[in-house]
Amino acid sequence: MTPHPARLTLLMRIEPGCLGPDGKLHIATFCAAATRLFAASAPQGLCWQLIPRHDKRLPELSFLLQDQTLTDPQAERYLQRLGLALAPLREQADERLAELVDRYLKTLGSRSP
């Protein structure tokens, strides 16, 4: 059995407030669904994990490699080896997240009587 190559995990913390005043009720479900959608389009060597951001002292985006936290410069170097760059990845992630939030809010609105 060959070992799996290390994958960089991009841990994105999502503010419950982005889902409106009742965001705390929906953020865990949203993050689970968004993680699956992000994973479906992640470049090889990357893994997205979206979790609720309950502690504002923690950064919105963290980088993990085999359970070790990387600094932004370390993550940038790792991404360069994969032929990727951090700035465009962040931009694409922010755009994708905004789309998913809009879609999710629309589904919540369609449940109202």
Rank of each mutant, 00 (worst) to 15 (best):
L61Y: 01
L61H: 06
L61C: 10
L61E: 02
L61R: 02
S62E: 15
S62W: 06
F63Q: 01
F63G: 00
F63D: 03
L64V: 03
L64Y: 10
L65I: 01
L65M: 11
L65K: 09
L65D: 06
L65S: 06
L65G: 05
Q66P: 03
Q66R: 15
Q66G: 11
Q66I: 11
Q66N: 15
Q66V: 10
Q66K: 14
Q66D: 14
D67L: 12
D67F: 10
D67E: 15
D67W: 12
D67S: 14
Q68S: 14
Q68N: 14
Q68T: 13
Q68L: 09
T69H: 08
L70C: 01
L70I: 03
L70S: 06
L70R: 03
T71Q: 01
T71C: 06
T71K: 11
T71P: 07
T71Y: 05
D72G: 04
D72H: 10
P73A: 07
P73T: 04
P73E: 08
Q74A: 12
Q74K: 11
Q74T: 07
Q74Y: 01
A75I: 05
E76C: 12
E76D: 15
E76L: 09
E76N: 11
R77T: 05
R77F: 03
R77M: 07
R77P: 00
Y78T: 05
Y78M: 08
Y78D: 08
Y78N: 07
Y78P: 06
Y78V: 08
Y78L: 09
L79F: 06
L79Y: 02
Q80C: 11
Q80M: 09
Q80D: 11
Q80G: 07
Q80H: 13
R81Q: 12
R81M: 01
R81F: 07
R81N: 00
R81A: 04
R81T: 10
R81L: 09
L82W: 02
L82G: 02
L82H: 07
L82E: 02
L82P: 07
G83M: 08
G83F: 04
G83D: 05
G83A: 12
G83V: 04
G83T: 08
G83S: 10
L84D: 02
L84E: 02
L84V: 09
L84T: 03
A85R: 03
A85I: 06
L86E: 02
L86P: 08
A87M: 13
A87Y: 09
A87V: 15
A87R: 12
P88A: 10
L89F: 04
L89G: 06
L89V: 04
R90L: 02
R90S: 04
R90I: 12
R90N: 00
R90D: 00
E91L: 15
E91T: 15
E91I: 14
Q92A: 15
Q92Y: 12
Q92I: 09
